[in-house]
């Protein structure tokens, strides 16, 4: 394990190459963004449709930098006690029960209520120390000795209040815990926030981040991604799959297939030993690509045309 900022990337190309080694094919824009974020220690806000590799980007970055990945999944109602820390109430209770006798001994010889109180006071910090603290992702991320990649997933699902709370962490990388004082990050984590745009994020949050939008990949990029993720796939089939999916994306569908679905579909076809796309096979496996019955229905008329186009594309 190395420190997070120990070896900085020297150029954007280097990032692209390193990502490619880790089987993540990224566009110029993604690489530039990671390059700036890593060098200037700024958080990245990643937006884009589901399944284009937003979460994967954070994971791969952690892998390349050889640091742990701390992940915080956001949802409605998420609050500090789930995100930052919580006291282990049960453990505190258990300990007080176990130590009841000791307490008796401790208080022996004390006369009067105030003296007993003072005696207890001199020990009560024990119960609010780090051994009774349940660390949650944000706390963990600040505490990593060597730095880490912090992934705050689907931040748009959280409430306004939580978003405001994040601001302190994202700009100062420190939080205040009343019982313990201010905790500052040992090494600033590299933060990725992902969003599906289910609601508009506040300007204050956006301002603190680099903004990266990952769109659906074009044909060339998708082909490269597929060959890196499913290397066993033959050239012909890969070209056909990519062409088919690109065509499907142009239809007016409820849920357009993204990269992860393309990869799943390619794997499915591989498993079924198909050499090239043929109508019955496509029809049977379409549910891997499309997730809504209405979408599959809408595809029915186009399947043949798209398969033919795909064949033309691959030259068979």
């Amino acid at each position: 394990m190395k420190k997070l900022y120990q070896d900085t990337f020297r150029s954007v190309e280097e990032i692209q190459n390193r990502f490619e080694e880790a089987k993540y094919i990224c566009s110029d824009q993604i690489a530039t963004c990671v390059y700036i974020a890593h060098n200037l220690q700024k958080p990245i806000l990643v937006e884009g449709p589901a399944g284009v590799g937003k979460t994967e980007l954070a994971k791969t970055t952690a892998e390349i930098l050889d640091v742990p990945l701390v992940r915080l999944q956001c949802y409605e109602g998420l609050d500090e006690s789930k995100a930052l820390y919580e006291w282990k109430y049960a453990k505190q209770l258990l300990y007080t029960q176990l130590l009841k006798d000791k307490l008796g001994e401790l208080l022996e010889g004390a006369s009067g209520l105030s003296e007993s109180m003072d005696k207890i006071h001199s020990h009560d910090d024990l119960f609010f120390s780090e051994s009774f603290l349940e660390p949650r992702p944000l706390y963990k991320a600040l505490h990593e000795e060597l730095g880490c990649v912090l992934l705050i997933d689907e931040v748009d699902k959280s409430d306004h209040e939580f978003e405001a709370f994040l601001l302190e962490i994202l700009s100062e990388f420190q939080v205040s815990i009343p019982e313990l004082g201010t905790i500052k990050a040992k090494i600033k984590p590299l933060v990725f926030l992902t969003s599906n745009n289910s609601r508009e994020l506040s300007d204050a949050l956006k301002r603190r981040c680099l903004h990266l939008y990952i769109p659906y990949p074009d044909e060339k990029l998708e082909s490269r991604i597929l060959s890196s993720r499913v290397p066993e796939l033959s050239d012909t089939l890969r070209k056909e799959v990519v062409s088919f999916v690109q065509n499907v994306r142009e239809l007016d569908l409820k849920k357009v297939p993204s990269i992860s679905e393309t990869i799943d579909w390619a794997k499915t076809l591989l498993l079924l030993h198909s050499e090239q796309l043929d109508p019955p096979m496509v029809k049977q496996t379409l549910n891997v690509l499309l997730k809504f019955e209405t979408d599959i229905e809408a595809m029915r008329d186009h399947t043949m045309a798209f398969i033919n186009k795909a064949h033309k594309r691959s030259g068979t």
Partner: peptide, 22 residues
């Protein structure tokens, strides 16, 4: 940080730093 040598990278740098939406 990214320098002015590569036009595409410069453009990307502006895009990720200045823009706040697609």
């Amino acid at each position: 940080l990214v320098g002015y040598s590569n036009r595409q990278i410069l453009k990307n740098a502006f895009q990720v730093s200045l823009a706040k939406s697609l």
